[in-house]
């Protein structure tokens, strides 16, 4: 019930992000989501792709330092209040949310969020109990 996120180390230099996305597009890697976190002198770009194996091979060959983390991708109704409801469910159940970001799909009326939590198993339980369903890697490809 998790999806794999690739996090990539980026030096803080002009053009680094563009260089990175160019590498992916040159190899026809389609990104479903991208989020950038920046410290004073380096950045971490996190991406969700359909083919994790292919993407990591390309990144390795291009000399990037990266890690692969299991994160949750949840489908939430595209309506006011549904995001904060999701966050509240996690908080109320003591699940620590490290970061989150949105991603889009071709499906109308639904929004998807990537959630990075400390305890995936517990998050899956509490979300499912509240009718929010994390999707798995295979489902992601079909969106």
């Amino acid at each position: 019930m998790t999806v794999k996120q690739i996090s990539v180390f980026l030096e803080n230099k002009p053009g680094r992000l563009a260089e990175f996305t160019d590498v992916l597009s040159e190899h026809n890697i389609d990104m479903r989501a991208l989020s950038l976190a920046e410290a004073a002198d380096f950045g971490i770009v996190r991406i969700i792709v359909n083919d994790v194996y292919n993407a990591s091979t390309v990144l390795k060959d291009a000399g990037y330092i990266f890690s692969i983390t299991k994160v949750l991708a949840v489908e939430i109704p595209d309506e006011p209040g549904s995001l904060s409801r999701t966050v509240r469910i996690l908080g109320d159940n003591g699940v620590n949310l490290e970061y989150m970001y949105a991603f889009t799909t071709r499906k109308k009326g639904l929004a998807y969020m990537i959630l990075r939590v400390e305890d995936n198993q517990k998050a899956i339980e509490v979300l499912t109990a509240s009718g929010i369903r994390p999707i798995c890697q295979d489902e992601l490809a079909e969106l």
């Binding site: 996090s7 180390f9 410290a39 330092i65 990266f66 890690s67 983390t69 490290e98 990075r116």
Partner: peptide, 11 residues
């Protein structure tokens, strides 16, 4: 130089 061991997804 950054290494894979030193790196993680957490800023």
């Amino acid at each position: 130089e950054m290494t894979a061991e030193m790196f993680s997804d957490s800023l």
